[in-house]
Computed example of a mutant assay.
Amino acid sequence: MSGTHTGVPSVLANELPRPVPIDDLEACPVGDLFRRLGDKWSMLLLILLGSRPHRYNELHRAIEGISQRMLTRTVRALEADGLVRREVHPTVPPSVEYSLTPLGQTLLEPLSALADWAVRHEAEMNEARSHHTSA
């Protein structure tokens, strides 16, 4: 938010072109982040790892319904984004531990704000959905 846009949410501070070019939409870092966090497992993994590091099997047991393949794909994607660190410990057999990177830690505050908003407005959204589907 700049001094000239006091009180204006940052997402509204700049006018979007009309129509919004598809290339701009696909290149948008905000959309990219929401696509990553909008999958079924990423946000849950970030929250779990935000509390403390976890070993792979610990994560697998902590999330009902996630397959080993999907857990592996999701932590690899979060690792590729620089949000999760994978550390292999030289034990026999080797153990793998996952933790948030400093970048991943910085995501916890905005995620918390979004989660707080969702909880605060859940009833309103459910009511709106019920009116929408019954109309």
Results as ranks from 00 to 15, higher is better:
G3S: 10
G3L: 15
G3Q: 11
T4W: 12
H5G: 01
G7A: 07
V8E: 03
V8G: 00
V8H: 01
S10P: 00
L12A: 09
N14Y: 00
E15P: 00
E15Q: 07
L16S: 13
R18C: 04
R18F: 05
R18Q: 11
P19H: 06
V20W: 06
I22K: 10
D23K: 14
E26L: 14
A27W: 01
A27K: 09
G31N: 12
L33S: 06
L33K: 01
F34H: 14
F34E: 06
L37Q: 01
G38Y: 08
W41F: 14
W41C: 08
S42Y: 09
L44H: 09
L44Y: 05
L44F: 05
L46N: 00
I47D: 10
S51P: 00
S51E: 09
R52T: 03
P53L: 06
P53F: 04
Y56C: 01
Y56A: 04
E58F: 02
L59H: 08
L59G: 05
A62T: 07
E64G: 08
I66C: 10
S67W: 11
R69G: 11
L71E: 07
L71C: 07
L71I: 05
T72K: 13
R73C: 01
R73N: 14
R73L: 15
T74M: 05
V75T: 15
A77T: 11
A77N: 13
L78A: 05
L78T: 03
E79D: 11
A80W: 12
G82V: 07
L83E: 10
R85M: 04
R86N: 10
E87M: 10
V88F: 00
H89F: 00
H89P: 00
P90K: 09
T91Y: 06
V92E: 12
P94M: 05
S95H: 05
E97H: 05
E97S: 13
Y98D: 02
Y98K: 04
S99V: 01
L100C: 09
T101N: 04
P102W: 03
L103V: 02
G104I: 04
Q105K: 11
T106A: 01
T106W: 00
L107Q: 06
E109I: 11
E109Y: 12
P110T: 11
S112Q: 15
L114C: 10
D116E: 11
A118W: 08
A118F: 12
A118R: 13
V119K: 11
E122V: 04
E124A: 13
E124R: 14
M125Q: 13
N126H: 14
